[in-house]
Computed example of a mutant assay.
Amino acid sequence: MVRDPLLRLEAVSKVFDGGTIGLDNVDLDIGHGEFVSLLGPSGCGKTTSLRLMAGFEQPTSGRVLLDGQDITALRPYDRPLNTVFQDYALFPHMDVSENVGFGLTLRKISGAEISRKVKEALDLVGLGDKIHARVSMLSGGQRQRVALARALVCSPRVLLLDEPLSALDANLREQMQIELKRLQARLGTTFVMVTHDQTEALSISDRIVVMNRGRIEQIASPAELYDAPATRFVAHFIGTMNLIEGKALETTGEFHRVAAGPMTLEVPADGAAPAPGAPVLVCIRPEELSVLASPSDDAVAAQIMSTVFYGPMLRLFVEIGGGQKLMIDTPRRTAAGTFEAGALVHVRPNRGSGRILSGS
């Protein structure tokens, strides 16, 4: 829970014509100066949430609050929020300065003041030298920066970003992720971004809201989401995860011990101790399993089914006793020429890795 949130969705639901549920009783607090990403698959409710914040949609029930004031009924242009759209929505018949200054022309501001603000906004996004360029002459990355400048020039309390980088190629997208985070940190403005790209959300967000079927599955920092997913959905959606069915053995000190076929896992005891013999579901990342060249008391035999090349890493798909299949990430430099399909290796779970999932 955020103390004194800047933006709040309070018990918000949205049901579209035909009965489709866009949001289902969502509560969400966003703090001053946060970079928050709404993350999830298509149809999860993330874009609906953003449109409700912006005023492009009205909730079926619930309220939208800004600094404690109910803004649910306010029209989009009466809210101190601006939106950067997925397609940038630039005016092709205007040059860069006219696009950036368009919102200011609707206010009682002098021409000189508009020119000053436009120049400051373009300098902020590194396009001061493109002030009189035609939009059609700009690259995708430059158009994205113009859209950002146009949204920022009016000094919004909150900047809403609707998948702003999705049209960019991979290299430019990565560069713009860094620029977005740098810009947000410099301005101190609250950013709320919709994305379906988990890597993007993990790399630049202060907190991530993982959504599924109109509800929030988990809200947490990138590290917490990655290390301690709260539900099976989050475990599947964030990164790559092994899900292992097992039985609880005992809790000793800071670890739960779990039997999973021939393998024994020792996972952090950060929740209620399961009863001995109770079925549990453990999630463990591929990098939290080690491959040994020779047998060990705490390792189990495994057969390599296939391998995938990931630059400095190899991902091994192996099978251990009982038919349990696992993914393991191991450094390629130490594994070159060693891990071929059909080879036998020994797998050891790192002590203190993985989590018992308590959510659905």
Rank of each mutant, 00 (worst) to 15 (best):
G253R: 09
E254F: 11
E254M: 15
F255Q: 08
V258P: 01
V258S: 01
A260M: 02
G261W: 09
G261P: 05
P262A: 02
M263W: 03
E266N: 06
V267S: 03
P268N: 11
A269I: 15
D270W: 10
G271N: 02
P274L: 01
P274F: 11
P276K: 04
G277M: 03
G277W: 07
G277I: 02
V282N: 01
C283R: 04
C283K: 11
C283D: 04
R285S: 06
E287S: 11
E288T: 01
L289H: 08
S290V: 13
V291Q: 01
V291Y: 02
V291E: 02
V291W: 12
A293W: 12
S294H: 14
S296V: 05
D297F: 04
D298C: 04
D298G: 00
A299G: 13
V300I: 06
A301Q: 15
A301G: 11
A301I: 05
A302Y: 08
S306G: 02
T307C: 13
T307Y: 01
V308P: 00
V308Q: 08
F309K: 14
F309A: 03
F309Y: 15
Y310F: 15
Y310M: 11
Y310K: 05
G311A: 04
G311D: 09
G311L: 08
P312H: 01
L314Y: 09
R315M: 15
R315Q: 15
L316H: 08
L316Q: 12
I320S: 02
G321I: 15
G321R: 05
G322N: 10
M327Y: 03
M327H: 10
M327K: 13
D329W: 04
P331T: 10
R332L: 12
R332W: 12
R333P: 00
T334C: 08
A335P: 08
A336Q: 14
A336C: 03
A336L: 15
G337R: 06
G337W: 12
T338Y: 07
F339V: 01
E340A: 12
G342K: 06
G342I: 05
A343P: 00
V345W: 07
V345K: 14
H346G: 07
H346F: 10
V347K: 06
